[in-house]
């Protein structure tokens, strides 16, 4: 049945569709609707477990414990809370724990501008914890996609055995659109690892060998482990190489944007070519290079000060023009103003 659904609600429903049965969270705008929906769901369905944690550290670690115990678990937060969750995200990668973290972005750093929309956690998403790791990250731009990619995140988490991030922003999270949720088909991957209480395993945040035995001074064991994980993540990422590319032969300029900004600049399709990564990390190298071929100018429009633009520049090994939409004001006029300044007047 078609009805009005909010972005945050769609994320929650996508999680349920994927079989999620555990949520832990700490209230923070603009993500709190997800926590409230989880609390309501747990009150109706005793098979769904809910904890309102004392802080985001606890929430991120609770979903790890729940996952080890056999649940499909998730949490939702925003910038400052996402920062607190970084240590658990690194742990999840070291211990190889499938779980899902939703980050509905707002303007930062710190408390910033609650709760104006932003896309300022892009770099944090990819590099926020210590060590090397290869997170899978989805960034939907519509209510339907919120549902679709929330569900996909759970499958990707099971396949990659890692914490998968769903990025959103205050606009996408609070966007209301008419969709028929039941008509959206998603693939559901079952739980992969036997739960606690079935073996004699040791799950440790220390570097370890295949048996879980700590190996804290063996470079070979570490390198083998990291390359194995890297290969697995690359393989899973390839399964979800979702992107949107609108070719335009009448222009020499490709505009790259994602999330809410890609919705806002959609009317520019007649004047420019458009590229939008949906599985935003790992970076889409091959796809990005292919789409960028033939365009003299590459422009990244985003609601941060060039976080993704720098990564695109590194990937393409070409100069990229940055148009930052800052301070929570994201609109077509500002994007047009930026384009005219940078492309026509050549301002830095």
């Amino acid at each position: 049945m078609k009805r009005l659904v909010q972005g945050n609600e769609a994320i929650f429903l996508g999680a349920i569709k994927a079989g999620a049965n555990f949520f832990a969270g700490y209230p923070i705008s603009p993500s709190s609707e997800i926590l409230v929906l989880a609390a309501e769901y747990a009150a109706r369905d005793p098979g769904f477990k809910f904890i309102q944690s004392e802080d985001e550290l606890a929430a991120a670690n609770a979903i790890i414990g729940a996952s080890l115990a056999g649940a499909k678990s998730f949490t939702a937060t925003s910038g400052p809370g996402f920062t607190l969750m970084q240590e658990a995200i690194g742990y999840g990668h070291q211990v190889e724990i499938p779980t899902v973290i939703v980050d509905v972005q707002r303007v930062g750093p710190a408390t910033g501008m609650p709760t104006m929309p932003a896309q300022q956690d892009i770099v944090q998403t990819n590099y926020g914890s210590s060590g090397d790791y290869y997170p899978l990250v989805f960034y939907p731009n519509s209510v339907e996609e919120c549902y679709r990619y929330a569900a996909a995140a759970f499958s990707a988490a099971e396949e990659s055995l890692s914490p998968v991030i769903v990025l959103s922003d205050a606009f996408v999270g609070h966007l209301n659109e008419v969709v028929d949720i039941d008509a959206i088909e998603v693939e559901v991957v079952p739980r992969s690892r036997p739960p606690l209480g079935t073996g004699r395993r040791f799950f440790t945040g220390l570097a370890h060998d295949e048996e879980g035995k700590p190996r804290t001074a063996d470079a070979m064991v570490y390198r083998e482990w990291l390359s194995k994980v890297k290969a697995r993540h690359k393989k899973v990422a390839a399964r979800y190489s979702d992107l949107e590319f609108k070719e335009n032969t009448s222009t020499d300029t490709l505009l790259i944007s994602y999330g809410i900004v890609s919705r806002v600049i959609a009317p520019l399709a007649s004047e420019f070519a458009l590229f939008r990564p949906i599985r935003i990390f790992p970076m889409m190298g091959v796809e990005l290079r292919e789409c960028a071929q033939g365009y003299e100018k590459i422009v990244v429009i985003e609601a941060n000060d060039g976080q993704y633009a720098c990564l695109v520049e590194r990937e393409l090994k070409r100069e990229v023009i940055q148009i930052p939409l800052l301070g929570g004001r994201i609109n077509l006029d500002l994007a047009r103003k930026g384009l005219s300044e940078k492309l026509e007047r050549g301002l830095p």
Partner: peptide
């Protein structure tokens, strides 16, 4: 430990 343990107990 405690957030992890509490979640494990709640699930199982």
């Amino acid at each position: 430990t405690l957030p992890v343990a509490e979640a494990v107990k709640l699930v199982t």
